[in-house]
Amino acid sequence: MPDRRLIALGVAAVACMVAFLLTGLRGNIAFVLELRAIKLAALLQVGVSIAISTVIFQTVTGNRILTPSIMGLDALYLFGQMLMVFLLGGIGYVSLDPWLKFGVEILTLMALACTLLLPMLKRRLDMGLMLLAGVILGVLFRSLHSLLARLIDPNEFAVAQSASFANFNAVRSDLLIFATLVTAGAAVLAWRARHILDIVSLGSDAATSLGISWVRTVTGLLLLVSGSVAVSTALVGPVAFFGLLVVALAERIVDTRRHAVLLPAAALIAIVVLVGGQTLFQHALGNSSALSVVIEFIGGILFLLLLILGSRR
């Protein structure tokens, strides 16, 4: 039964991609097509990385309303980036090889994420406390980010602005090849870990008695999550509630927490929402930068609902 739903989701995703590529083609068709293909590739990666990172993060933390970005991971990425600019100086930073730069940024995020989150996961703190701490960490890193931005260039207000919302239009296509490698790697790893993830979702005690080395596994999964977050944030900027929205929808549709089904379902839904939404906003509503705000709005409300409903149970 879930298989049939997965196929339906796959068909929907392909339809969205085709619509994205072909709607309203005009002018120099080859050129426009190439442009759109690049953008599509970026959107696919964003969707897949956010879906993967959110599913795994929820499984590891044993919590359905956590996402990496609610815990401040994307703010952390932006902060790490700004820290590099600060330490290397604007020119030194720009002259770095973009691959090297991105590689270092991903490694920085992985290191920071593990130092910050591992202690929490080992102790399995009260979930409310953990969430709140994460949100505050997010605020803190955003403030640090804009503080550094101003220290580097006091007149550059745009830098601080850019950190607040994702922009699915201005995709960083220079990173595309590298990001593709990371996303593909993360997807393969996540897929291979699907059975382990099922066990991890039982919690540390049960998983340990089933022969899983908890700390090692969780560390590995966190690294995977950090890599995916870095990709999506680098490509389009921070997206707070998109992952939550996507995974909640996926769970609704395939009605299982089995990762062999949930992972692909979440990725496909992410693609449908992102690519389909982008097509819709671009052609039907005539402005596409609003998509991220709308997604955040709906995702935020969903989060509040989950919080209230979940706590009543």
Partner: peptide, 19 residues
Amino acid sequence: LPPTQPFLVPLFGIVYGGV
């Protein structure tokens, strides 16, 4: 929100403010 989980209230408020 359940009074036994005091941290949910500010969390709720922060996201509510975000929306």
